[in-house]
Design a protein around this nucleic acid. Sequence first.
RNA 1: GGCCCCAUCGUCUAGUGGCCCAGGACACGGCCCUCUCAAGGCUGAAACAGGGGUUCAAAUCCCCUUGGGGCUACCA
Length: 503
Amino acid sequence: MTSPISPVRVRYAPSPTGIPHIGNIRTALFCWLLAKQTKGQFIVRIEDTDRTRYDTEAEKAIFESLDWLGLDWDEGPGKGGPFGPYVQSERQQTYIDAALKLVESGHAYFDDTTPDQLHALRERQRAAKQPPRYDGRGRHRSPEEIEVSRQAGSPVTIRLKVPDHGAVSFVDAVRGKITFELKELDDFVILKSDQMPTYHLAHILDDKAMGVTHVIRGDEWISSTPRHLLIHQALGIEPPTYVHVPLILGKDKAKLSKRHGATSALEYRDLGFLPDAVFNFMCLLGWSPGDDTEVMTREEIVRRFSIDRINDSPATFDSEKLEWMNGVYIRNMDEDTLIVELLPFMERPESEGGLPDSVTRPINRAYFKRLLPLVHERLKLLTQGTETLDFFFADNVNPAAEDLPGRKMDAEMTKRALEAALEMCKTVAPFEPEHLEAEYRSLAEKTEMKPGQLFSPIRVAITGKAFAPPLFDTMAAIGQDRCTERIYKAIGILRSAGTSPAE
RNA sequence: GGCCCCAUCGUCUAGUGGCCCAGGACACGGCCCUCUCAAGGCUGAAACAGGGGUUCAAAUCCCCUUGGGGCUACCA
């Protein structure tokens, strides 16, 4: 149960039936980590044997997610490798051959029970309070009967013969020994009537063919592992090491799914999260390095990762903590890198969260570079660039009258503050942060206001917001003329509010 | 229903029989810093699901109960 030191061959084998969610991708992450750590291989294989649920978009999303998180694979689609193809639908013949061989060796048999009959059987069992289970009726069908069904166009499957007594057990690398009674299992389908294998058959054949040493997969597979063990036995091959990792649950403690809001890696990307932060955070869901370290580089995680330290219990996804960690990563980022990340978000159309459409694209980089230090440590998400910087670019700042007064200020006092501020703004020179601060502080003294009281209305007048970067840096960056205009405008807003009957 | 898995603060977790009247992190409260918001510092509240064993000693081992989850498809 110790971590392997010899190189592993591990695979991430998603089925393209939906956008992969965090729980699913986290499994890929664990695979990747183990491969990197042991200098083994990380294989990606597309399990598209369910033709009815196949979705091109899902397949695209799988690769996009992997790319975005930087989980590069050694063998797989688009990359090739010595054991291809890495798409199951292209390996169909091997599954058919194997299934047929299992029939020949007496481990499996043809079954022509129709879906309707199966359904009726289950209904009867349910009504009789019996566990719904296939009753093995196909075991007694003669080759002739099967042939008749086949000619008649009835669906024919191949099922594995499961012994009706005995038990199978295996040692899971994270949970230890797990045993199942065989009488709990029914004869299950290994080759469907459309000649495609089920997951159970296909993955075993592929893993064997591809030399997979460790099967790392979600907890939900524990219950089908006895089936997989049985197939190995029938095929006369050794099973791999099983590593069942705990599931990731949504806020309601149910297995993560679409209805939990943002659940795919790609959604987090679009929300403004950094791949490194998501990577780091996901590693900590179901694994920990053993001390209190949480923020780690990829290299550090690769070095410290171990199967022994994978948790037994499921984790609930807490996006608040992810947001905090994203902030940490943003703060640790150098400015030039951050600019590159931030610009695309701010240059999106206004309707998609970008700067107002009136602001010309591309954004002036030199100006942007000057602004970034003012907000750098305030950002938690890349999408927040727009809201924290928009007033530097757009001149349509339009504060509401009731937002202008600071704490413990009435409209009259606010107006006085702004009028004094306006006079100074027109003439003060140089228009530099230190000088501005000194001047405005003495203005506060002269007008017998607390600095905060004077600064508050100015801040709102200039930025349109109660929360903004340091005032004088902001003013200097915006420039004397634009500041003057904005303060003037704010006074106007205050005046008309004061005279309106609604007040 | 049956089978399987799981069970430490709200959340992620440390803890592998004594170092634990349980440590860290997020979130939350207070204080400090401060032109606002952040960031930072200090600090507070907050958990071993319950019951039985085993042991000199249990969050840690065993059993039961309870709770949660997964599976029970010609889906993966």
